[in-house]
Simulated scan of single mutants.
Amino acid sequence: MKISLCTLFEGNYHFGVAALSNSLVAAGFSGVLWAGYRGALPAWLTGSPSYDAATATYQVSPDFQLRMVLLNTPVHFTYYKPTFVRDVFEKYAPDSDTVAYIDPDIVMKCDWPSFCGWFTDDALSLAEDVNWAFPSRHPKRLLWSAFFAQHGIASTRPIERYYNAGFIGVPRQHVDFLVLWERLCSLVLDYNQGVKHLKAGGSAALFHSTDQDALNFALTAHEATLNTAGPDAMDFTAGGYYLSHAIGSPKPWNTPHIRNAIGGQSPSVATKAYFQHIEGPIRAFSDAEIKRHRFALRLASAIGRVYQRR
């Protein structure tokens, strides 16, 4: 099975792409990470002798390439995920059997052979969200069904869980799922009046988590089998060993670790996982910056062992 990976980033999320790439090398992944982006590329990439500007390719290791794709879309990238995954299938890596999208604030924790068990040619690969319990007759699901029914899209199966959109693996057999998800994202975008933020309105809003809500309704309107893991698979609960997802803000590369610790918030598991993958082969930080980050993280962790906000 040929598996291609992809991600989307802009602004300082390039620091996340660097750590994600490093974690894939550490895991033993062989292949390509397609990175769609807006704006200027970071100096750690364009200034590296391993970067070929003509092909927009960074040879991260002998077996792993980071391929950059400049995108021209006005919408928030959170709505663009299904479109980009489909483009990888159809334009960039048409020989792929499976394409998996991974957010740039995620790092891989396990070895690649262990991770590959998640992918089969007949199923979507997903991980439950931090708020994973979402009954099939939940009030918001009923409202979603009523909304999408107006557009000719019906829920055809009950699902009791809510899945995170930061990672999804799609086999070629179910490329049509991406078309459905893309259409739902467009409808949600129109409903939210072209919102340019990750979240829309308050938690009770019909589509607060935008693309993620669209994804979770799409799962009820499509027949694909689901290969699923619990919230631990993204370090949302203890005991995880697949991925570590630094949800929320600020992101690990922006977090004032010591100030947060003094305020009673210890460094998260995902933050610590991120900083395990900053030294290479891609070095997005200088030696001095790495030392500063590691010192702040150690001190913040020490503070957190004796003081936490209740």
Results as ranks from 00 to 15, higher is better:
70 L>Q: 09
22 N>D: 11
91 K>C: 01
252 P>F: 06
229 A>T: 11
68 M>V: 02
293 H>E: 10
205 A>C: 02
149 A>Q: 03
2 K>F: 09
251 K>R: 11
32 V>H: 08
186 S>H: 01
31 G>M: 13
227 N>E: 04
224 A>V: 07
89 F>T: 03
248 G>K: 10
92 Y>V: 04
131 N>K: 15
101 Y>H: 07
210 T>D: 05
120 T>Q: 15
88 V>N: 11
130 V>Y: 13
71 L>P: 05
223 E>N: 08
271 T>H: 11
42 P>C: 04
114 S>M: 14
21 S>Y: 02
282 I>T: 06
133 A>H: 08
63 D>F: 15
305 R>H: 04
237 T>L: 12
74 P>N: 11
240 G>W: 09
245 H>E: 05
104 P>N: 12
250 P>E: 05
114 S>E: 12
113 P>F: 00
186 S>C: 00
132 W>C: 12
96 S>D: 01
275 F>P: 09
93 A>I: 06
54 A>S: 14
215 L>T: 11
52 D>N: 15
90 E>T: 05
287 D>K: 14
222 H>E: 01
63 D>E: 15
190 D>R: 04
301 S>R: 00
292 R>Y: 01
121 D>W: 06
297 L>T: 06
136 S>Q: 08
23 S>E: 14
217 F>T: 09
225 T>C: 10
84 F>K: 05
299 L>P: 01
201 G>T: 07
187 L>S: 00
171 P>H: 05
173 Q>A: 12
234 M>G: 07
214 A>W: 04
290 I>W: 02
32 V>D: 07
203 S>F: 12
304 G>K: 00
284 A>H: 01
92 Y>I: 05
184 L>H: 08
103 D>H: 12
29 F>H: 04
